[in-house]
Structure formats: structure tokens, C-alpha cells
């Protein structure tokens, strides 16, 4: 396996980690104003992700950095081409992160309600936009022979990419609900489980529509064949299983399998892409690939060594952080930070 392929895989892994982790962060944020009936409940909900959301977001920062270091042409074309989408995403992530820290630092109910809605908006927008962005990866965007994006904002918005947005939006919301049902005290968790049952339905519908459109609008057939193989099938199967598990109230298993669903479906997107990183809608031959967008072999080698040394530590202490805060959040005010 070449270093180019390894870095493609690593970036895919970073995105998968990001979607799984920040997926439930987003979900919690989206559900916050609707599910939290009073201030205590909302604080409990935020506290489930309190120690983690910032570390989870670093998965995205690292993915961006890895993209810049390993495939600078991909980074340059993607970030400049998706300018307004990323601008919206940034604004959302900024106000959301600040809102977590600010909302409980003043008792005024108006202040708190305001920041709760900021958390909602700041979670809703990225949850939706990630689907839009990834759909455009595989659908293709106007890229010319100099790797320049020559379209505009509206090239990124289509029925297909909006469905893609709904997939990630509903998927992350579901992920958040299942996470909450694991992390909140029993009575509250039961209520959340009922909500998760409802959320599963729009998610599976969106995924179903998205899968059909993918067959018509991308070159998935050339890539993966009529029988797409294990991964995409596993993605669909795990999502179906999640529904059953949620209805049976097996929330631990539901969370595990839903993480797998995110893993398999994100992997499917990256499998359709490979060895390209951004498909050109003008001419498939103009697509950015892991070869023509890559850094020099020397840079890739240096970065590989550094990643190999430090990634295990990062994984180790992040897992440890989840272990430290493994207990369910109770309504005991003394244990609430946010």
C-alpha cells in the first residue's frame, strides 16, 4: 500500500471518528430545546457531552490539517470551492462552542434560552451541511484542469445534496438521542428512547432515497459494481438493526450498532471516491486524486512517522476521558457544570 493510500485511509478514519463523536454532540444540541423541558434537564443534556465536545471537534481540525499536509490540492480546491458552505459551518461551530461555555454562567432565563437556541442552530447547520458536502464529493463539482473550482455556491445545492444533508441531519440526531438514552438517568432515558424510535424513521427514509439517487447520479456502479460488496450492505443492515434495537430498548447495543452504521456509510462514500478525492463534474479525468493532489513522498513519510508515534497516545487518552465520565448524568445539581 502506498503512502498516498494510507493518508487517504487516515483522513477517512478521521472523518469517521469525527462523525461518530461529534455526531452525537450535534444530536444532543439539536434535541436540546425540544427535549429538555426545564433548565435542569437542559443542563443534564449538555453535561452528557460537556467534557467531550471540544475534543471531538479536534477530530475535524486534525482531518483538515491532515488534508492540508498530505493532499494540499484537495484542501485548497475543497476549501476555496466550498467557500460559503464552510463559512456557514464555521459560524455555526463558533457560536455553538461558545454557547456551551456561556449558557450557564448567568442565571437570567432569557440569557439561557438564548444560548440554548444558539446551541440548536449551531448544531443543526453543520449536521445538515456535512451531508451536503460529502454528497458533492462523490457527485462531482466543476473543477478545471488547473484544479480550480469554477462554479459557485449553487453548484453545491441540488436535490441530491439536500437529501444527503437530510441523511446526516437525521442520522446525527438519532445518534444524539441514542447517546442521551445511555447517558441520562433512567426516567429521562426512557423518554429519550421513545424519541429515538421516532427519529429512526426519517433517517431510514432519507438513507433509502439517498441510496437510490446515488445509483443514478454517481459512478457507484463503475466503482463498486452491481453488487456493492460488504460495506454498503453492512451500512444498511446496521441501520435496520438499530431500529429494532431501539424499539427493544437495548440502548447500549443500539449505540454501538449506530456507530457502525456511521462507520460503514462514511466508508461507502470514501470507497466510491477512491482513488479520487474530489470528482470533477466537467470531466471525470480532471478529478483530484490521491496522486495528483498529494504532497511529496518526503512530506508524506515525515507525517506518517509522526502520526504513527502520536496517534496511539491520542486514542488512549480520549478513550480514558470517556471512561472517567462513564456514569449516567443525574439531576443532582451539584454534579452539573453547564
Amino acid at each position: 500500500m502506498t503512502l498516498n493510500t494510507i493518508w487517504f485511509l487516515l483522513i477517512a478514519v478521521l472523518f469517521i471518528g469525527y462523525f461518530i463523536l461529534e455526531g452525537f454532540d450535534f444530536g444532543v444540541g439539536i434535541l436540546l430545546p425540544f427535549v429538555g423541558k426545564n433548565d435542569t434537564e437542559r443542563r443534564m443534556m449538555i453535561n452528557t457531552i460537556g467534557p467531550h465536545w471540544d475534543g471531538n471537534e479536534v477530530w475535524l481540525i486534525t482531518a483538515g490539517g491532515a488534508m492540508f499536509a498530505a493532499f494540499p490540492q484537495w484542501y485548497a480546491t475543497l476549501f476555496s470551492g466550498f467557500y460559503l458552505v464552510l463559512f456557514l459551518m464555521l459560524i455555526a461551530l463558533i457560536i455553538r462552542g461558545v454557547a456551551f461555555e456561556f449558557r450557564s454562567k448567568d442565571e437570567n432565563p432569557k440569557w439561557r434560552t438564548f444560548w440554548d437556541w444558539v446551541i440548536f442552530i449551531g448544531s443543526f447547520i453543520p449536521a445538515f451541511l456535512w451531508g451536503v458536502a460529502l454528497t458533492n464529493f462523490i457527485r462531482g463539482v466543476p473543477i478545471d484542469a488547473n484544479f480550480h473550482f469554477i462554479g459557485n455556491f449553487w453548484n453545491l445545492i441540488s436535490g441530491y445534496s439536500l437529501i444527503g444533508g437530510l441523511v446526516s441531519l437525521t442520522g446525527f440526531t438519532l445518534q444524539g438521542a441514542i447517546f442521551l438514552s445511555l447517558k441520562l438517568e433512567e426516567q429521562f432515558a426512557i423518554r429519550i428512547n421513545k424519541i429515538a424510535r421516532k427519529l429512526w424513521i426519517p433517517n431510514i427514509i432519507a438513507v433509502f432515497l439517498f441510496a437510490i439517487e446515488t445509483y443514478f447520479l454517481t459512478d457507484i456502479l463503475d466503482r463498486l459494481g452491481v453488487n456493492p460488496g460488504f460495506v454498503p450492505i453492512a451500512a444498511v443492515l446496521s441501520l435496520l438493526t438499530v431500529g429494532w434495537l431501539v424499539y427493544q430498548n437495548y440502548n447500549g447495543w443500539a449505540f454501538f450498532i449506530n456507530c457502525l452504521a456511521i462507520l460503514f456509510s462514511t466508508t461507502t462514500i470514501f470507497m466510491i471516491l477512491y482513488p479520487r478525492v474530489l470528482v470533477s463534474s466537467i470531466d471525470k479525468n480532471l478529478s483530484l486524486t490521491i496522486i495528483n493532489s498529494a504532497s511529496s513522498p518526503y512530506t508524506l513519510k515525515v507525517m506518517s512517522i509522526i502520526a504513527l508515534i502520536f496517534l496511539p497516545f491520542v486514542l488512549g487518552y480520549q478513550i480514558w476521558a470517556y471512561w472517567v465520565f462513564r456514569k449516567r448524568i443525574t439531576s443532582n445539581k451539584e454534579s452539573l457544570h453547564y
Binding site: 486534525t62 490539517g65 491532515a66 488534508m67 492540508f68 499536509a69 494540499p72 504532497s295 491520542v314
Partner: peptide
């Protein structure tokens, strides 16, 4: 330039 940024994140 990308390398130090990625290393910073990691």
C-alpha cells in the same frame, strides 16, 4: 505549511 498545522492538531 500543512505539516506543522496537522502536527499542531495531533
Amino acid at each position: 505549511f500543512g505539516a506543522p498545522l496537522a502536527i499542531e492538531a495531533l
